[in-house]
Computed example of a mutant assay.
Amino acid sequence: MLATIKQVNDGYMAQFERHFQHSVDRVWAMLTDNQKLKLWFPELSIIELREGGSIQFDMQDGTYEEMTITSYSPQSILAFTWADDLVRFELYEESAGCFCIMKEELQTITEHTPRDLAGWHVCLDVIQALLDGREIETRKQEWEKWYEQYREAVHKLS
Rank of each mutant, 00 (worst) to 15 (best):
I46K: 02
Q60A: 06
A79F: 11
E43K: 13
E48P: 00
Q60D: 04
F20A: 01
E43R: 07
M13D: 12
L37K: 03
Q75K: 05
H19L: 11
N34V: 11
Y72L: 15
W28M: 01
D58H: 01
G52I: 14
T70A: 09
S23T: 12
T70M: 15
N34C: 09
A29G: 06
K38H: 14
I46Y: 03
S45H: 11
G62L: 11
L39T: 05
M30L: 04
L44V: 13
M13R: 10
E65W: 12
G53Q: 02
D58E: 05
A83C: 07
E66D: 15
Y64N: 06
R26K: 10
P74Y: 09
E66T: 11
E48K: 01
N34P: 04
Q56W: 09
L44H: 10
W28L: 05
E48W: 01
F41Y: 14
Q35L: 13
D33R: 06
N34S: 06
E48H: 05
L37D: 06
P42R: 13
G53K: 01
E48F: 00
G62Q: 09
Q56M: 03
Y12P: 00
G52N: 11
S73D: 11
I47E: 07
D33Y: 12
G53M: 02
L37N: 14
Y12S: 01
P74T: 04
Q15Y: 13
W40V: 05
W40R: 02
V27Q: 00
A14I: 12
I47K: 12
L49W: 10
E66V: 11
A83F: 08
Y12A: 00
G52E: 15
W40I: 04
T63S: 13
S45M: 14
L37Q: 02
P42L: 12
Q75E: 09
M30Y: 13
S23M: 07
Q15N: 10
K36P: 08
L31R: 02
F80I: 14
P74G: 14
E65Q: 09
Q56G: 07
E43Q: 13
V24E: 02
R50G: 07
Q21F: 08
Q21A: 05
F16M: 07
T81A: 13
D25V: 00
F16D: 07
S45Q: 14
W40S: 01
T81Q: 08
Q75G: 13
D33A: 12
S45L: 15
S54Q: 11
P74V: 04
